[in-house]
């Protein structure tokens, strides 16, 4: 196998992780729509799941459920950390959506630039 293909296989997970992370960052900064911003935030969050899970994978291993027939298991620790992070993630995204709903009721818009033009809401 040529070294270029080997590098591709060994680092592809990290590259995609970084692409998703940067895409989330771009969405949060560039888009004015608040729901789009929250989607960008969750893109960033899911890229972190990949960042944690990729190094824990062992090629040829299986899921960390102990069985006498199996020898090699992937690392269970990142799984635990990300498992809780996903549920906490949806709870916090829901909190963000609740704020967006209230902002829409107050200002009649969910576009950031339009809110700044309106000034302070009453």
């Amino acid at each position: 196998m040529s070294p270029a293909i080997e590098t591709l296989i060994t680092s592809y997970n990290y590259w995609i992780t970084i692409f998703l992370m940067v895409a989330g960052l771009y969405t949060v900064i560039a888009k004015d729509n608040m729901i789009k911003k929250l989607v960008g935030l969750s893109l960033f969050q899911t890229s972190v799941y990949l960042l944690y899970l990729s190094p824990g994978k062992i090629l040829g291993g299986t899921a960390p459920i102990i069985d006498p027939a199996l020898k090699v298991y992937s690392n269970p620790l990142p799984h635990v950390l990300i498992l809780t992070a996903i549920v906490v993630g949806v709870a916090t995204i829901a909190l963000g959506l609740a704020l967006v709903v209230r902002i829409n009721e107050e200002y009649g818009t969910i576009e950031e630039d339009e809110i700044f033009e309106t000034g302070t809401g009453k």
Partner: peptide, 12 residues
């Protein structure tokens, strides 16, 4: 305890 799953998944 024996397969994939737990409180978080069951709750959802």
């Amino acid at each position: 305890d024996y397969g994939p799953g737990g409180g978080f998944q069951a709750g959802v």
